[in-house]
Design a protein around this nucleic acid. Structure first.
Length: 804
DNA sequence: CCGATT
DNA sequence: AACGGCTAATCGG
């Protein structure tokens, strides 16, 4: 049978552990059971054949049963590029692994045990070279509506079938502001799918006659109907927003109370809510549950989106440009109890949550599919991974293909040791402060990946023994050399990602940007880019399996060398370099032409080794440089690009950011510092007169740890304390919103939670002196303005005259 | 005022 | 559960 592999897992329970594959063929999803896959690990020991013999004789008592290895063999493998003999120990049952591992670990000849911590569902995909969200060929026999796999399945190409995608969301009766699953019922479940279903399930009839509302008897019936609809619509991918942390755990607790079995699985099995160390995740056998909040978080960490907070409303607005209806949480109970217009709004809101989740999901799924295919791990796992984990799982797959053993993760003290061992990063030039005209910006294309590939940077090629000192590549300023003869593991894989991406970008150019094919190739190259860009970070990450501080610091050292050399070359050619950070440089044309800039680019690239390449980023007609990491430029189409200024930060009040933005526009677009000064004076005036919207005064700061762990009580910590006293749930990671009000004491003493503002006056002096003026002064100062020129009512005509 | 914390 | 560099506000002795 050939089909499309949408999900897989490994069932450990019972006597017959087996891998399970869910394969879509036409409109049907077929469950395939593979009982032939066994857990194993590798042992590295001094005298391999002797130790192998001892392991094969080893017996351990566990739970009244005698546990022993199923088979033991000595095999050839490589450890960081070096050939070694390893002992492969295979087991009958996953439960046998741990007791035997501990026993074997105690052998004094044993140096290490490898790959014991690779989850079996992942191991299965890796060992068979399978590609999730792609084709699979299976040979086996049908049995009870399933297929029992007889031969190892293989990856094949098949066309992508239409998948059934559904989104859902719950609303909870919520009188205290903190939903309590033991008391507060779920009052609505909304659903939407990619074949036109739109529905809100609820158990109170408001007599509103809305076509998308289905009224059932009670909460219990509602949960049953939800399960029934998932089954009936034959859902392949179930989308939610924050469903790992909120909806599913809540549903599970309510279902437990009401005696409902959450049989959402394809085979009628129940969902499993797994508590991980830092998160909770919900798996639905045979269907892929995707929590889009995790996906959005991922896009935020790689810098693809940047928002103040990542609520569904905000993300939806940012991605689609559309606003979705909003309801105050305090209105929930009133709506539920009172009915009428408020109930109608709540139903609309509930529906819009599912609609927005579906739309977002359909937007992000193609990228997640490509990441899954590239890394070769399941969509479910991929959608919850960080970029470092994506790289690591791709490396584990590639290591297996080459017979390389996977390095272990650091344990205990080793992690702490690694973390202490810091190293020097990128070069950042002190900018030439002020306003500059006619800029050209160059940057190195994927500088760090290019360095790794060009200089063969890998733990196995570091200070190799095969090259003479003059043959190997010397790292500038560091006592490290990299092999010039044997290709390293990491550079080889990274090089393939980069060349594959270059090919895809070539194909994209031939296609119409609106076409389906273009979107597909775009997402494929984007997945490759995301992963390629994460290799360097992984090398420097103390928890990574392929961590190597020496490799990481070599990358940054080469980076500093190339950017500094380029700055020197630009200066010698007569360009004035006004700023540079890591891989980019901002030059003043200084009377030279754009053609001169292109010729300079060619000369730099002639001097660059390997795949390292400087590119022309753009020309800018004007730019203002404030300090390191803080600047703004305007291009030929009058588009302003702002970096690092308060404008893009959430820990500043909107009023400060808006004013700064207006000031930047006045300076860059209109070339008028006078206009900028007028804007600031008018804003300070309206602050003093109390005319500013409260929402423009809110400052957001994330609580990074538990209140008790803070040594210094900043405004957001003081507010968090107050929220806790009010009975609100306060936990690390929450975004604290506050306003500074009039009164005495420190800023923290006067910081008030947004929901407690009624009847209090904001502190105009604080917002002028500590928000608007500092944000704006950073810009105005470099133009020669002083604070007194900008405060309302205190403008000095003399100094202003200079600019008029 | 200034180093530490965020 | 990706890196380091960097600015700046506020606390608190």
């Amino acid at each position: 049978m050939r089909g499309f592999l949408i999900d897989s897992d490994y069932v450990k329970g019972g006597e017959f552990p087996h891998a399970r594959l869910f394969v879509k063929r036409g409109k049907e999803v077929i469950t395939c059971i593979d009982p032939n896959f066994r857990p194993y690990f590798y042992v590295i020991a001094d005298r391999p054949s002797r130790v192998a013999k001892a392991i094969s004789k080893l017996e351990v008592e566990k739970g009244g049963k005698t546990v022993r290895a199923r088979s033991v063999e000595v095999v050839k493998r490589a450890l960081l590029g070096k050939e070694i003999q390893a002992i492969k120990v295979t087991f009958d049952h996953p439960n046998d692994v741990a007791p035997l591992r501990h026993e074997i670990g105690d052998f004094h000849e044993v140096q290490g045990i490898y790959e014991f911590d690779i989850p079996l569902e992942r191991r299965y995909l890796i060992d068979h070279g399978l590609v999730p969200m792609s084709g699979i060929e299976i040979r086996g026999e049908p049995q009870d509506g399933k297929i029992i796999v007889r031969e190892a399945p293989a990856h094949v190409e098949v066309p992508e079938p239409e998948l059934n995608v559904m989104s859902f969301d719950i609303e909870v009766y919520n009188p205290t502001g903190n939903p309590r699953p033991e008391k507060d019922p779920i009052i609505m479940i909304s659903l939407a799918d990619n074949r036109g279903l739109r529905k809100v399930l609820t158990w109170k009839d408001f007599g509103l006659n809305l076509d998308y509302v289905e009224v059932v008897k009670d909460e219990r019936e509602m949960l049953c109907r939800f399960i029934q609809l998932v089954e009936k619509r034959d859902v392949d991918v179930l989308l939610g927003y924050n469903t790992d942390l909120f909806d599913f755990p809540y549903i599970r607790e309510r279902a437990g109370k009401l005696g409902v079995k959450l049989k959402l699985g394809r085979d009628g099995s129940e969902i499993s809510v797994k508590k991980r160390r830092f998160a909770t995740v919900t798996r639905i056998p045979g269907r892929v549950h995707i929590d889009l909040y995790a996906a959005v978080n991922f896009l935020a960490t790689i810098g693809a989106i940047k928002l103040i907070n990542y609520t569904l409303e905000n993300v939806y607005k940012h991605v689609t440009g559309k606003k979705k209806p909003d309801v105050e949480f305090s209105d929930f109970c009133e709506a539920w109890e009172g009915g009428g217009e408020k109930a109608k709004r709540l139903l609309e809101y509930s529906m819009s949550d599912a609609d927005a989740t579906l739309e977002l999901g359909l937007e992000f799924l193609p990228l997640l599919f490509e990441l899954s295919r590239t890394v070769k791990q399941s969509l479910f796992d991929i959608s919850r991974m960080t970029s470092g984990q994506l790289v690591e799982w791709l490396l584990i797959y590639e290591a297996h293909k080459r017979g390389e053993l996977v390095p272990p993760r650091p344990v205990g003290g080793e992690y702490l040791e690694r973390r202490k061992d810091t190293y020097v990063g990128a070069y950042v030039m002190e900018p030439v402060r002020g306003l500059h005209e006619n800029l050209v910006v160059f940057d190195f294309r994927s500088l760090y990946p290019s360095i790794i590939v060009t200089h063969n940077i890998d733990p196995s090629t570091l200070n190799c023994s095969c090259c003479k000192p003059e043959e190997a590549t010397e790292v500038p300023g560091l006592p490290h050399r990299f092999c010039a003869k044997k290709r390293g593991f990491i550079p080889a894989i990274l090089e393939r990602l980069i060349t594959d991406r270059a090919k895809l970008k070539g194909e994209m150019k031939k296609l119409d940007e609106g076409s389906r094919e273009y979107r597909s190739i775009y997402n494929r190259q984007w997945a490759l880019k995301i992963i390629a860009n994460s290799f360097y970070g992984m090398l420097g990450y103390p928890r990574a399996r392929w961590y190597s501080k020496k490799c990481a610091e070599s990358v940054t050292s080469f980076g500093r060398r190339y950017i500094k050399d380029t700055i020197e070359m630009a200066r010698r050619e007569g360009f004035e370099v006004v700023y540079s950070d890591t891989d980019s440089l901002y030059c003043k044309l200084n009377g030279k032409t754009r053609e001169d800039a292109l010729r300079f680019l060619d000369r730099v690239n002639e001097a660059m080794p390997g795949v390292i390449e400087l590119e022309l980023e753009d020309f800018y007609k004007r730019g203002i440089f404030v300090s390191k990491k803080r600047y703004a430029v305007i291009d030929d189409r009058n588009k302003i690009l702002v970096k690092g200024l308060e404008f893009v930060r959430r820990d500043w009040a909107t009023i400060a950011k808006k004013t700064q933005e207006a000031v930047l526009e006045a300076i860059l677009r209109d070339g008028s510092p006078e206009k900028a000064a007028r804007i600031v004076r008018s804003v300070t005036k309206s602050i003093i007169e109390g005319k500013v919207d409260l929402e423009d005064l809110v400052i957001y700061t994330q609580l990074k740890k538990s209140i008790g762990d803070y040594l210094s009580i900043g405004p957001h910590v003081a507010v968090a304390k107050r929220l806790r006293e009010m009975g609100r749930v306060v936990e690390p990671g929450m975004l604290v919103a506050y306003v500074v009000v009039k009164g005495s004491g420190s800023v923290s003493d006067r910081a008030v939670p947004v929901e407690e503002l009624r009847g209090k006056d904001y502190d105009a002096g604080y917002y002028i002196g500590h928000q608007v003026l500092p944000a704006v002064m950073r810009i105005m100062e470099v133009l020669g303005y002083g604070e007194d020129d900008l405060r309302y009512g205190r403008a000095k005509q003399t100094k202003l005259g200079k600019f008029i």
